[in-house]
Simulated scan of single mutants.
Amino acid sequence: MSDAAAPAGTGPRTVVVFSHRPEVRDAVRTAVGTHPAQDVGPVRWLDCATGAEVVAAVDRGGVDLCILDGEAQPTGGMGISRQLKHEVDDCPPVLVLIARQADRWLAHWSMAEATLTHPVDPLVAPRTVAELLRDRAGRPVVRGRAG
C-alpha cells in the first residue's frame, strides 16, 4: 500500500468498518458494496471488532475512510472518531453509524464528517461513502500520530 490515497478511478480504496457486532459490519459492507461509485474505484474492506484495531489500522496508514458504529461496546465509534481526529495527522474521513437522527449532535462532537442511521440505507450509504472518498482523493495522506 502506498502512502498516498489512491486517485479516483484507480486501485482499491481501503475502508475500515468497525463494530463489535459482525452483523453491523456485514450490513455496512452489503449496503455499500465493493464499488460505491464508478469514479472512486473499488473498495477494500478492513473489518475491525475493537477500537484498538481501528487505531492500529489508521496508525499503519493507507486508510481512506473509517466507518464507525456509534453504538459499539465497550468503546463507541464516536469516542474513537474524536480520538483519531485529535491524535492522527491528516486523519481519514470518518462516517459514524447512529441509532437515531437525534444523535447527530454527538456525531458532530466526535468530529465525524458524515453520519448514517441504522438500519443502513443501501441507496444513501454508497453515495455518502463515495462523496467522502472523493474528498479524500484530493488530499495527501500523512501517516502516523501527532506527537
Rank of each mutant, 00 (worst) to 15 (best):
G9D: 05
A107R: 10
V24F: 04
V142C: 11
L46H: 14
A137M: 10
L123M: 12
E53Q: 15
W109T: 09
S19W: 14
L132Q: 14
A52H: 05
H35C: 11
T115I: 06
A130R: 04
R25N: 01
D26C: 00
G144H: 08
H118V: 07
V17P: 09
R25L: 08
G62I: 14
G144W: 07
A56G: 09
V88Q: 10
G147Q: 13
D121G: 06
A52L: 02
G77A: 04
V142F: 10
P74D: 02
C91H: 03
D59L: 15
G33L: 07
V55C: 06
G11C: 08
A112D: 09
D89S: 15
A114H: 00
R104H: 09
G62D: 14
Q101H: 15
V55D: 06
W109N: 15
L97G: 10
D26F: 00
V32T: 10
D103A: 13
P74C: 01
R134H: 12
A130D: 10
R104E: 12
D3V: 14
A99P: 04
V54C: 03
Q83Y: 07
V58L: 10
T115K: 02
W109V: 12
L68I: 00
S2K: 12
D103S: 13
W109G: 11
A102Q: 08
R29W: 03
D3S: 15
W109H: 15
T117P: 05
R139Y: 07
P12K: 12
L95C: 13
V24Y: 08
D90S: 14
T50N: 06
H118Y: 12
V142Q: 15
P42L: 09
G51W: 06
L133G: 02
E23G: 01
P7G: 09
L95I: 09
E23A: 04
C91P: 01
A49Q: 10
L123T: 14
V16T: 11
L97C: 09
V15K: 06
T50D: 06
G79A: 06
T128H: 05
C48F: 12
V63F: 06
S110P: 07
A99E: 14
A4L: 12
R143G: 04
A37V: 07
D103Q: 13
R100E: 11
T128L: 09
P93I: 03
V124P: 00
L46N: 13
T30N: 00
H108Q: 04
P36E: 04
S110Y: 05
A130H: 09
D39H: 10
T14L: 04
W105E: 09
V28D: 06
W45E: 03
L116W: 11
F18I: 06
P140G: 02
A72S: 13
D90G: 13
V43N: 04
Q73L: 01
E23K: 01
V24N: 01
D39G: 08
A57F: 02
V142H: 15
T14Y: 07
R104M: 09
V28L: 08
G9S: 02
R104C: 03
V40M: 08
A114M: 00
A52Q: 08
D89H: 14
H118L: 14
A56Q: 13
R21D: 00
D59T: 14
V54H: 03
V142Y: 12
V15D: 07
L65H: 02
P119Y: 07
A114N: 00
V24C: 05
G11E: 12
W45R: 02
P93W: 04
M78P: 03
P92W: 03
R127Q: 08
V88N: 01
G144P: 04
A137W: 08
E87H: 09
